[in-house]
Amino acid sequence: MKNVIIFDHPYTAIASENEPHNRAYAAAVLKQTVSMLKAKGEDVDIIDLHADHFNPVMSAEDLASWRTGHSLDPQTLDYQNRLLDADKIIFIFPIWWELMPAMTKGFLDKVLSRSILPKHGKSPFPKNPTVIMMTTMGTPPLYYKLHYHKPVFYSFWVGTFHKIGLKKFKWLTFDGDAKLAKREAALRKIKF
């Protein structure tokens, strides 16, 4: 099984070590997810958007190449090829202002171009991967679901991946404001 993980946090993947002012619960989720997958003997390919200096802004040139299905950006082409070879596509990011960060949104905008969008209603992904969204948030998850009505779910899953033909989806969310013992317990339960 090939897992491609798209990680989005400004502190990058190294922020999993609980170092003050350079730590992120999302990075701890990434570290535990990688450990779990490797323990199962699965391949893990990490795209760390901030470490890669990914530019999420869709320029006029990017949009023109998106429309023709021929990206001029070698980084975007590399990301596309890695996704097309995946059995599982895993996104790990914090929820800010009830949605995904700009890097994740820009990744979706630029990487899911016409060159890999569905043709005639069929998924462009040969392995029909499962999409897994793993999020951290300060809003209590039940409140996020009931009060805000899960906007990240609808924009990410319904409005993006389901629309382009992928039907297998899983969402795991982690309460970043929970006490340390609860956050650590949640990390130990990661499996899919």
Rank of each mutant, 00 (worst) to 15 (best):
W66E: 01
R67F: 05
A102F: 04
W157V: 09
K119R: 14
E17A: 12
W157I: 11
V57L: 10
N128H: 12
T136D: 13
S16Y: 15
F161Y: 08
D175V: 11
F156Y: 15
K189V: 07
M103G: 01
N22R: 09
T136I: 12
N22Y: 06
D52T: 06
N18P: 00
M133T: 08
L84A: 03
A186V: 07
D109H: 08
H53Y: 08
S115D: 15
G41D: 05
H53D: 10
L37T: 02
F54W: 06
S115E: 13
D73Y: 01
N18G: 01
Y11R: 11
L84P: 00
L30W: 02
T173N: 14
P140E: 14
A28D: 10
N55P: 04
M36N: 09
G41E: 03
R23K: 12
R82E: 10
F7M: 02
L112T: 01
V57R: 06
N81C: 03
D8F: 00
A181Y: 08
L30F: 05
H21L: 11
P118L: 08
S59I: 06
G121E: 03
V152C: 10
E17Y: 04
V34D: 00
E17Q: 14
F7C: 01
T160A: 07
A24L: 07
F161G: 02
I92A: 02
V158Q: 14
F7H: 01
I95C: 11
K145G: 06
L180S: 09
Y79E: 05
I190N: 12
A185P: 05
L172W: 10
G121K: 01
T76L: 14
W97T: 13
L77G: 02
S155P: 02
I90S: 05
E98D: 07
P20Q: 09
D45F: 12
M58E: 15
L146Y: 09
L187F: 10
R188Y: 04
L112F: 15
S16G: 09
H50V: 06
P74M: 03
D175L: 07
D52C: 06
K145R: 13
G121S: 06
S59P: 07
I190R: 11
